[in-house]
Design a protein around this nucleic acid. Structure first.
Ligand SMILES: [Mn+2]
Ligand SMILES: [Mn+2]
Ligand SMILES: [Zn+2]
Ligand SMILES: [Zn+2]
Lengths: 166, 166
DNA sequence: AATTTATTTGGAATGGTTCTAATTCGCACT
DNA sequence: AGTGCGAATTAGAACCATTCCAAATAAATT
């Protein structure tokens, strides 16, 4: 894995030549470290590694799954720190928390407006891109006086085997 | 409160002259007892009272809130039974479980397709009716091979004081 | 280097929900 | 109406994802 930098601002990680970067509407203009310090927080190895783990495998892992993955890089990290870091990353809008019913919270670095599809057979979660016009239509069903700060759309169901997923 | 019966099939509860009934697209054709026995389950006082409590005050109560309300009618009921009954009512599609992030599950007797708005100030939850065509448009964003068995749409935000709620 | 403040850490606590095993109930069949 | 049997209720224990706590460590500031 190699760190590259585009525009002298954005450090992206290369794995097998595939650039890994946060999925934003526009190109990201800040590194995670920048976003953290901009929010008055410190850039720590734990936060950076956890963020990179979310970027590298976007399968919406739970805190436990993140814990298992980060331990290979930071063997002495604690589960409490994983929770703390994930909360911090969510707090500065680098990551989104995704919930399905009462299952453990999952974490997603995709910052574009998108819905989630949860395959009940596989337990897998997929991103479904949300057309901007549809998002507007959905917001439009709210009666006057209802001011939404966030919208969440989630599907449950099954995926056909031929719909090849990552 | 008076129990009335229309069509010799549907027992509705009258509170101050206002008929209380499940909110379905069409008029309900079965009583709760019917739906239960049709599902091979028994109609018990606990199940009936809990269902009537959900119909009478549609504020999306939690299991604890249902417990507090049902105790006035069935003082010896247990919290475990409240959970059991709610699960049973959800299982035979008389009631829907509604989740906001990791908050306690709430329960809703509105069976029409609708979204939920959660007021973060008041902690209140409101039903937002969902136009059928919009529901179709939302389903249409799924790639081929993704078969959704349920869709959930939830808003978080604040309501203006003049948007008078129940 | 010393001080200050933020972060990490292990372990305990929390709280909504589920599980367990005993009791009670509803219902079908005498 | 009484009996038997499976279903439902009950109290309390257990579960488990998450949060809290207080001590240790690390990062920034002086
Ligand atoms: Mn699942
Ligand atoms: Mn709330
Ligand atoms: Zn996602
Ligand atoms: Zn509802």
């Amino acid at each position: 894995m190699v760190l590259i930098r585009t525009c002298d601002l954005e450090p992206f990680q290369l794995t097998d030549g595939v650039p890994i970067m946060p999925t934003t509407t526009t190109m990201p203009t800040e590194t995670a470290a920048q976003t953290l310090t901009d929010s008055g927080l410190r850039s720590t190895p734990q936060r950076e590694v956890i963020y990179s783990i979310l970027l590298n495998k976007r399968d919406h892992p739970t805190a436990d799954e993140v814990y298992a993955r980060v331990k290979t890089e930071l063997p002495s990290i604690s589960l409490a720190t994983v929770y703390n870091c994930l909360e911090t990353l969510v707090g500065c809008n680098l990551v989104r928390a995704v919930n399905f019913d009462r299952e453990p919270t999952r974490y997603c670095p995709n910052l574009r407006p998108h819905a989630h599809f949860h395959d009940e057979n596989l337990g897998s979660t997929y991103d479904i891109d949300l057309p901007p016009d549809l998002l507007e239509q959905i917001k439009a069903i709210l009666p006057p006086g209802y001011n939404a700060s966030s919208i969440e759309i989630s599907f449950r169901g099954h995926t056909a085997p031929e719909a090849a997923q990552n």
